[in-house]
Design a protein around this nucleic acid. Sequence first.
DNA 1: ATCCGACCTGGAGCGCACTCCAGGTCAACC
DNA 2: GGTTGACCTGGAGTGCGCTCCAGGTCGGAT
Lengths: 119, 119
Amino acid sequence: MSVYTPAEVVEETGFSIDTLRYYEKIGLLERVGRNAAGQRRFSQEDLGWLGTVRCLRDTGMPIAQMLRFAELVRAGDHTIPDRIKLLEEHDQQVQGQIQNLAARQQYIKNKISYYRSVL
Amino acid sequence: MSVYTPAEVVEETGFSIDTLRYYEKIGLLERVGRNAAGQRRFSQEDLGWLGTVRCLRDTGMPIAQMLRFAELVRAGDHTIPDRIKLLEEHDQQVQGQIQNLAARQQYIKNKISYYRSVL
DNA sequence: ATCCGACCTGGAGCGCACTCCAGGTCAACC
DNA sequence: GGTTGACCTGGAGTGCGCTCCAGGTCGGAT
């Protein structure tokens, strides 16, 4: 079973060590394993979960909602329908963001064209 | 020349009155005209600029950069090439956001599919 | 005349998501 | 065995972008 040092996890996930500690503190990350000296040793599972967290964060999910998702995951397989619901709602959210951005981008492009035309 | 009360501008732009005052205070919005009683009366031009601000904000431009853009606009037509440059960079930024979101969205959709498959 | 509601100012406060710090432990390499 | 550096904890601090508040002015409807 491979384990990872904080430095390796920082490297792999792009989260800072402070952020990892913070996530553990608030319970977004379950209590991470320690070596004899009390230093964190992350498991493969931790890494996988952090990948999910990265994705949800980068799509703008607030920490409070990720926390709710984390609790569902911990609560066991019977919460899978709830997890699907949560992710579907978030997917809709992301869809909206993309569409909104695309529309705004058009406005920006038009503005650029306008500026070009008056040069 | 039509002018608009704060309430009308709130309605039109979706910015709260506190936000409008804040934008004026930091110089993102040029000193807005007043009536005899000192109440704000926004011009058509203010409305147009607020539309641009709305667009830039919603695409994630930080206020500091909008401020730079505002200064270019105020400085006159000779800054148009700079404005184009700024907007083009931002357009790239937005493009990146959209692509990133789309990729993350795929991850979410896959996760949903996986959850569906284990039900 | 008086009341209500929209508006004003300056300044304090807030929520989010980190980020930094002091003061300390431990291991490993020279 | 001394130094370096990665790591630890609890808690304070930060940056952004608003948001709220106290205390006050004005103008129009009743």
